[in-house]
Structures are given as structure tokens and as C-alpha cells.
Amino acid sequence: MARIGRISWSWDPIQEMERLERDWSDFFSGFGRQSAVKYPPVNIFTGEDNVIITSEIPGVDPEDVDLTVTGDVLTLKGTRRRQELGEGQSWHRRERGYGDFYRTIQLPYNVESSKVEASYSKGILKITLPRAEADKARKISVKTA
């Protein structure tokens, strides 16, 4: 998939990453390599004072999700339960994945673990991780001798 003279008016980081990922997996597909996709997928938003991580995990019971933070590493663990068939039902299609998941995510800085907040709504897990006080950038005034 060669692109020559690609003109874009607004730069879209996700689109760009998807394109790169696709190009790489196209490149490797000839060698029988499958592009590894981590589950659940996360997006990381970085701000001055905190990091927001969002993850798409539709249909998961928040009780089945386990989050831990140590220093600058977030561990995301949980289960997406299988949709069970009722009496006399059979599947036509099964595309939605299920099973256990486990991920560790390296954060851009140390986090105040006692102030981490997480919410789950519309199938999206949103974790707000405040930057540790000790880790914040400090302005150092230069004294005159």
C-alpha cells in the first residue's frame, strides 16, 4: 500500500497510528505473522497534573475488573464473561471476544496511588491518575550570590 504525496490538512494521531499499524502488519503478513493486538485496548491522555487512561471493555461487570498502581506502572486485570446460550439456542455468529485479560501499562510519571480514580460507563473504563507531588516539575529560583 504505497502512498505517494499524501496530503493531509489536519493531523490525526489515531488515524496515523492505525495507518502505521496497518502498514506494518501488511508488511509482515507475508511472513505468516499476525499483528498482535493487546486487550483491552487503551488510550492515554497526558496532562500537567494527571494522566487519563481510557479503555474499551464493553459488557464487563466492574466487579470483575481489578486495578493496581505501583509507582509508574498500572496493572489492569479482569474478565470478560462469555455470553452463554440459553435453552435451545444456537450461534449464527460469534465475533465478540471473551476471556481473562491482564495488562501492565507504563505511565509517563509516578502516580499518587491513593488518589487514583476509576469509573466505568457505556463500556468505557476511565482511570484518572494524579501525578505524584514529589514527581511534579518544580520551578527552581536561582539565587544571586
Binding site: E56, I57, P58, G59, Q83, L85, G86, E87, G88, Q89, S90, W91, H92, R93, R94, E95, R96, G97, K122, G123, I124
Partner: peptide
């Protein structure tokens, strides 16, 4: 992504629409 199941009375469709 969808799951579709069928039994004698219904077709049931599940679709993941996070967000």
C-alpha cells in the same frame, strides 16, 4: 463486533458499541 443467536422463537443480536 456482533454475536447472533437463534432459538425457535427469537433471533438475538449482541453488538459491542463501547462509548
Amino acid at each position: 463486533n456482533v454475536d447472533i443467536s437463534e432459538d425457535k422463537d427469537n433471533l438475538t443480536l449482541y453488538a459491542d458499541l463501547p462509548g
